[in-house]
Simulated scan of single mutants.
Amino acid sequence: MNQPDYEFLRKLLREKSGLDLSSDKQYLVESRLLPLARKAGLPGIGELVQKLKDGNSSLIGQVVEAMTTNETFFFRDKVPFDHFREAIMPELLKARASRKSVRIWCAAGSTGQEPYSLAMCLKEMGAALSGWRVEIIATDLSQEVLEKSKAGLYSQFEVQRGLPIQLLVKYFKQVGELWQINSDLRAMVQHRRLNLLHDFSQLGTFDVIFCRNVLIYFDQETKINIFGRLAKSMEADGFLVLGAAETVVGLTDVFKPLAERRGLYRPSGAAPAKPPAFGTLQKMATMAGH
């Protein structure tokens, strides 16, 4: 791929998705777009770029999807899900005891492993959530990955990555060579196509926002803008969960980190919270009864 073609693709991707590719990522672009070019019956990336310059809108959408579909797996990085079980939900059970409802947004839901991991965490809480309404909204730029998420069908390889065997047995059923997450868990997750660069205020207000491993691809100005809008979409005492390589520190003061919980943030106006002790399942059941 020649340099002008690469520069054209960089500019296109930044405008359409916020993806900020550095000048040394040509190998990544080639590995993702060459299969797409061949599928479209084109001999190479140069011809693909020419079609894009001609304004082929469906091809533009496919290029954006190919470049922004990120890897995901069940309980990825483990720590955010420990935070969810041990700090976030116990506090929300107390704070939302009167209204008995919690809204959670997975802002880069991809093929569903993250929202379904959260759904399994919630199911495991059992009686503590009896009588509660819990909404999980999963959004993504790619319609293709959202369709896969809705279906909840995963290969043997996908369920072996990060998913404990006891949860596989408990919450999935085998369909031929695939595994499908049970319908009651699928019903816990609503899917919406969404570009984080665009207005998302119509989604409403959330108690918890998981926005992991997506902001790393954006330039600084875009990140600051998205953090500002995330803060407006969150309850004053809500929680923001970022990926391991992401932070608000040095970018914005609308969120503050919880020193003892890596990757966990609160809106700056929120009262400081003490993280609950480990092994909180029993306590959670008690809190829900209050």
Rank of each mutant, 00 (worst) to 15 (best):
D5N: 09
D5K: 08
F8S: 07
K11M: 09
L12P: 00
R14K: 14
L21C: 10
L21Q: 08
S22M: 13
S31V: 13
L33G: 12
L33E: 02
L36N: 08
L36E: 07
A37E: 03
A37I: 05
R38G: 02
K39F: 10
G41Y: 07
L42K: 01
E47K: 13
E47V: 15
L48Q: 02
L48K: 07
Q50A: 15
Q50W: 14
K51P: 04
L52T: 11
G55Y: 05
S57H: 14
L59K: 04
I60S: 06
G61M: 15
G61T: 15
V64P: 05
V64I: 12
V64S: 04
T69I: 08
V79G: 02
P80K: 01
P80S: 02
D82Q: 10
F84M: 00
E86M: 10
A87M: 13
M89E: 00
L92N: 01
L93K: 02
K94T: 06
A95D: 13
R96W: 01
A97P: 02
K100F: 10
V102T: 07
A107T: 04
A108Q: 04
G109T: 11
Y116K: 01
L118E: 04
M120R: 00
C121Y: 12
C121A: 10
K123M: 12
E124G: 11
G126K: 08
S130G: 14
S130I: 12
A138D: 03
T139F: 05
D140V: 08
S142G: 08
L146N: 11
S155Q: 05
Q156W: 11
F157I: 10
E158Q: 13
G162W: 12
G162T: 12
Q166I: 13
L168Y: 00
V169W: 10
V169D: 15
Y171H: 14
K173D: 04
Q174W: 06
V175Q: 14
G176P: 05
L178R: 15
S183Y: 01
S183A: 14
S183P: 11
S183M: 03
S183I: 07
L185A: 11
M188A: 15
V189A: 14
Q190K: 12
R193S: 12
L197C: 03
L197Y: 07
D199S: 10
Q202S: 15
C211L: 03
N213Q: 14
Y217F: 14
Y217L: 03
D219W: 07
I224F: 08
I226V: 13
R229A: 03
R229Y: 04
L230M: 02
L230G: 04
K232Y: 02
M234K: 06
E235F: 05
G243C: 07
A244F: 11
A245D: 13
E246K: 04
T247K: 05
L251I: 03
V254S: 01
P257K: 01
P257W: 00
A259D: 13
E260S: 12
R261G: 09
R261K: 13
Y265Q: 03
R266W: 06
L281Y: 09
M287K: 04
A288K: 01
A288Q: 03
G289D: 11
